[in-house]
Computed example of a mutant assay.
Amino acid sequence: MRIAFASSTGEKIDQHFGWSKTFHLYEVDKESATLLKVIESSDEPEEEVAKLNYKIGTIEEADILYCTQIGPKASKMVQAAGIHPVQVKEGEALQGAIDQIHEMLNTQPPLWLLRIFHKGAQRSA
Rank of each mutant, 00 (worst) to 15 (best):
M1K: 07
R2A: 00
R2V: 05
I3W: 03
F5R: 03
S7C: 01
S8G: 11
E11I: 10
K12I: 11
D14E: 09
S20P: 08
K21P: 00
F23L: 10
L25N: 02
Y26S: 00
E27R: 15
V28T: 12
V28R: 13
E31F: 09
E31L: 11
L35T: 06
L35V: 13
I39D: 04
E40W: 04
E40Q: 10
S41I: 04
S41E: 11
P45W: 05
A50I: 03
L52F: 04
N53G: 13
Y54G: 03
K55F: 05
T58C: 13
A62Y: 01
L65Y: 05
C67D: 04
T68F: 08
Q69T: 10
A80M: 07
A81C: 04
I83F: 15
H84E: 12
H84W: 14
V88W: 04
E90W: 01
E92T: 09
A93S: 14
G96Q: 12
I98P: 11
I98H: 07
D99H: 14
D99W: 07
I101V: 15
H102F: 13
H102W: 12
E103K: 15
L105R: 10
N106C: 12
L111C: 01
L111G: 02
L111P: 05
L113V: 12
L113T: 08
L113E: 11
L113K: 06
L114T: 15
R115D: 08
A121C: 08
